[in-house]
Every structure is written in C-alpha cells, then in structure tokens.
C-alpha cells in the first residue's frame, strides 16, 4: 500500500516541482533533477521482477507524458529496474538480506544506501540520456549531462531519505 502511495507521490513531486527546476535543453550544460527512480530503488526485496519491471514502466510512462518525451523515461526506468538485482547482488551484506524489507536507509544504514542509490542513479542517468540522445555519436554529451545531473538528483534522493526515512 505504501508503495502505491509512494508511486504517486514521486510522480507528482517529479512533474510538478522538479520539472520546473530543470535548466537548458541543447548543449552540454543541462541540469535535470530526477527523483522518481527512487521509487524503483525502494521497492521491497521480495517484489517479483515482472512486477518491478511493469511498475517501473508505468511510472516512466506517466513521467514521460508530462515531459513530452514518450518512452524515454520509461525505457530508462525499465533498464534500471532490470539491473537492480545485480546491483543488490554486488552490495549484498555478509549475512544476506531480509527479503521482507525494502533496501532503504533505515534498514541498511546510510553509507550502504548512499552507495546503492548512487550506483543505480548513475546507471539510470546514463540510460536516460542515451535514450534521449539516441545515438552513440553524442557519447560525450551523454556523459557530461550525466555528470551534471547526478549530484543534483542525489541531493534530492538524500533529502527524501533523511526527511521521510520510512522503515517499510
């Protein structure tokens, strides 16, 4: 239930507030605040992968509709949801996960969550800007845009993690 609430909360926050903060469109200087991938980060560990993929796709499509870029956010979100199990595998603590919980700050601790969210956010941004540019010709632009947007997006992820800090 809380995840459905979160789904819409992230969506509304993303399209109503963060969208207005984005600056610039063409050129290498391009700041974009993407917070909604945090929904994917916080999905419970026992979520079946198919469910995770479909909810990521749904959230991406909704965001796309507001950003007028149908498919770009959805494609990036699906990729992020797809690689999440591998990232979780790399970061697995010595005594394993408790599959009933979400991998969040309250359960896993701040340093772990920061690493986990950073890796996934970096992937998500690379995916997003790759689909946005849609050609390997723009690889430099893709990486520069990722570099600029990464800290800005992470600031919001950290803020949300500290302000709400849910246990579920």
């Amino acid at each position: 239930m809380i995840h459905i609430t979160r789904f819409f909360a992230f969506y509304i926050f993303q399209v109503l507030i963060l969208k207005r903060l984005s600056i610039g469109w063409e050129g290498p200087v391009f700041f974009n605040f993407l917070l909604y991938p945090m929904f994917i980060f916080l999905l419970p560990l026992r979520t079946p992968q198919v469910v995770a993929l479909f909810s990521a796709f749904a959230l991406g499509i909704l965001v796309d509709m507001s950003y007028d870029s149908l498919g770009v956010h959805a494609g990036a979100s699906v990729l992020t949801a797809y690689i999440r199990p591998w990232v979780l595998g790399w970061l697995e603590p010595r005594d394993g996960y408790n599959v009933n919980y979400s991998p969040n700050k309250a359960r896993m601790g701040a340093p772990w969550f920061l690493r986990y969210a950073s890796i996934l956010m970096a992937f998500h941004l690379v995916f997003y800007y790759s689909l946005d540019a849609f050609s390997p010709v723009y690889i430099v632009d893709i990486l520069l845009k990722t570099l600029y947007s990464f800290p800005l997006s992470m600031i919001f992820v950290i803020m949300v993690a500290y302000i709400f800090d849910p246990e579920a």
């Binding site: 796709f57 498919g71 770009v72 959805a74 494609g75 699906v78 797809y82 689909l131 849609f134």
Partner: peptide, 9 residues
C-alpha cells in the same frame, strides 16, 4: 517493456 519504450520513443 524495453521494446515498447523504444517503439514509443
């Protein structure tokens, strides 16, 4: 889903 996204894009 990824194919759908690419088609939409």
């Amino acid at each position: 889903l990824e194919a759908t996204s690419l088609v939409l894009i």
